[in-house]
Design a protein around this nucleic acid. Sequence first.
DNA 1: TTAAGTGCAAATTCTTTGCAGATTA
DNA 2: TAATCTGCAAAGAATTTGCACTTAA
Lengths: 152, 152
Amino acid sequence: MNRKLIFKKKIISELAKNGLRNSSKRNFIITAFVASRKHLNADELYAIVKKIDAGIGFVTVYRTLKLLVHYGFAREVDFKDGFTRYEINDEPAVQHDHLICIQCGSVTEFKDPAIERLKDKASRDTRFKPVFHRLEIFGICRQCRNTKKKQH
Amino acid sequence: MNRKLIFKKKIISELAKNGLRNSSKRNFIITAFVASRKHLNADELYAIVKKIDAGIGFVTVYRTLKLLVHYGFAREVDFKDGFTRYEINDEPAVQHDHLICIQCGSVTEFKDPAIERLKDKASRDTRFKPVFHRLEIFGICRQCRNTKKKQH
DNA sequence: TTAAGTGCAAATTCTTTGCAGATTA
DNA sequence: TAATCTGCAAAGAATTTGCACTTAA
């Protein structure tokens, strides 16, 4: 809870450093985004902030997300559902990845430090300097395995 | 070379089993796709096959790619350049992954069996059954590291 | 006051589909 | 000949931008 507040302040401060303003609308959007621990797309975040301030437009939400990505506070993820999704990027040390169910679409996060070793190894031979990665494992989740009825 | 031919025959044969026809246009498209070892998007493949048969339309290329994906002969990859790209999927045993340069956009493939262990481990706790994965490591390639001048 | 922020509508861009005519088995 | 295939054009859908007005510093 407190951690989110700290992260938000860090964002606002970093934006200020770059001559960007802390408008009330942008502030609402950032607050809502940081508060949410989900993988929202622009539309979903828009639906949330609209409840706080009905005057906020979709485009502002969209531009704010792009801003966060640009300054490294968010990252774009792709779960093959047709949307660009965004998630908070506040702990670069051990980046988490995703298990995505190809039946129900549910997303589970997981972390494994082994990915860092794999990254290093893969990069060593080619002298490629890794900056960030994206790992998505698609499969069948526990729920769907139990209830054997296929959805679609 | 011969391996590509074998793979192509396998595709045609599998499609036939499902009542799908080996039309000359589809044949050209599959040939061109299998011959290419790159990560083409629909437009790029279209440009290639057009040289072979100017009468082939973009939509046919697009639909053929979707067909190959549906039957497991191709897989879609996303390098964050705004296009859905396609690559041959002929060796499911050890799936390869990608190193993508965020400066010049070059793509290098790599393989590491460790990814399989990581998949298993990540899946064990959550009782998630992995089917396929996607791992992209973004960073700076050897070339770009040497020539220090940044390309936008 | 002045540079950044915002909403609206419209433009872009990639992807997908309907349908009538062509082609394959 | 009967079902599949194909091209065209147009629709869809997500993303992005131009521009005039608003707001923060």
